[in-house]
Computed example of a mutant assay.
Amino acid sequence: MNKKIIGSFLASVMIASTTTISAFGAMGSGTVVIGTKAFDLSYANDPANLKEINSAIVDGGMVYVKDFNGKWINNINGLAAEISSIPAVIYKNATQKISFDAADLDAKVTTTINSAAQILAATQAVVKAEISKVQADVDAANASVIALANAEQSKIRADLLSRLNLIKVANTTTPTTTVDVTAPILNSVSLTIGQPVLATKDASGNFKVSLGTAKATDMFTDLKLNTSEKATAKITCLGRTKTFTINDAGDVTIPVSDLLGSYASAAGISVGTLKGYLGLLGNSITLNATLTDAAGNASTKTIVIAAN
C-alpha cells in the first residue's frame, strides 16, 4: 500500500465518534477494515494501538470505513462500496475479538482479550471479601465473578462463586472491637514508713495495715497503690476526698498530706503522732478508694490503717 492510501486511511480513522457494536449481526458504525482485520474506531484512534494499526496497513489489503449511516466506504476512492466486497475479518475493540463472515454478516465472539485481567480482578475481589467478611465487599466480588461469562471462564466462575457462598458475613451493625466491661482491681497497698509496709488483702479485696511494729519516731510519708490497669483513684479519708491518676503501669504514690490534710505536714507524720490521732478515732481510720478506668468501669475497696 502506497503512502497516499495510508495517508487517506489515517485521515478517515481520525474522525472522532461513538462506535456502536452489534454483537450478533453487522459490524458497528465507525468500523475500519484493513485487509482481513477490522477495528473499532476508538481502538484504532488510541495511540497505544498505533503499532498494531500500522502493522495491519503494512500487511496490505483493501481499506473500508463504515460511516455513521451504516454505509461502507472504499477508503481509496471515497466511493460507496458494495457490502459483498467486505471480506471475512477478525474484528477487534478494547475488550473483544469477534469473527465476522464475508459481507459483514454472522458475527460470533471468539475470545475475550481481557479475560485474564477479568479473572484476576474477580479473584482479588473474592480474596478481599474472604478477609473482610463485609457485605459490601461480598457484593462487589459477586458482581465481578458474575461478569466472567464466557465459556473458558465458566469453571473459574463456578469455583469463585462457591468460595463466596462459604463466607459468613460479619455483623457490621455492632463494631467487632472488644468492649471493656471489667472494673480495675486493687492489687496491693503499702505505706512508706522509712521502708514499705505491706497491707494485708482479705477475700473481699479490701486491705488492712498495722502500725504496731513501727517506731514512734518513724515517719509515715506516703501511700502506694498498685492496680490492674490505668485508672483514677478517688480516695475519701477523714471526710476529705481527692482524686489521683494511676499510671499505665497501674501505680500511684499519694503523699500523706494529701490524705490527712492538716493532720500531716509536707514531710509526712510520725507514727507516734498518728497513733495519738487514731486513739481518738477508735484506733483506726478507713480510706475508701474508688478506682475507675477509661471505659467507666469502677470498683470501691477499703484500706484500714490500724494503730495495732
Rank of each mutant, 00 (worst) to 15 (best):
M1K: 08
N2F: 04
K3Y: 02
I5Y: 15
S8A: 07
L10K: 13
V13I: 12
I15F: 14
T18G: 09
T19G: 10
T19P: 14
T36D: 12
L41C: 11
N45M: 13
N45R: 15
D46G: 03
L50N: 06
I53Q: 00
N54L: 15
Y64H: 02
K66H: 00
N69S: 13
G70Q: 05
K71T: 01
N93K: 02
N93D: 15
T95G: 10
A107P: 13
K108M: 14
I113C: 01
A122N: 10
K128S: 14
E130W: 06
K133F: 04
N142M: 07
A147P: 05
A147V: 01
L148E: 04
L148K: 00
E152R: 03
S162G: 15
L164N: 03
T177M: 10
T182Q: 14
L186C: 02
S188W: 03
G194D: 08
A199V: 00
N206L: 03
K208I: 06
S210L: 07
L211C: 00
A214I: 07
D218C: 11
F220V: 01
L225A: 00
E229N: 04
E229Q: 14
K230L: 05
A231K: 01
L238C: 02
G239C: 05
T241S: 13
F244P: 14
I246D: 01
N247I: 04
P255A: 12
A267N: 09
T273W: 06
G279L: 11
L281W: 12
I285S: 00
T286H: 03
G296V: 13
K301L: 00
I303Y: 08
I303N: 06
V304N: 12
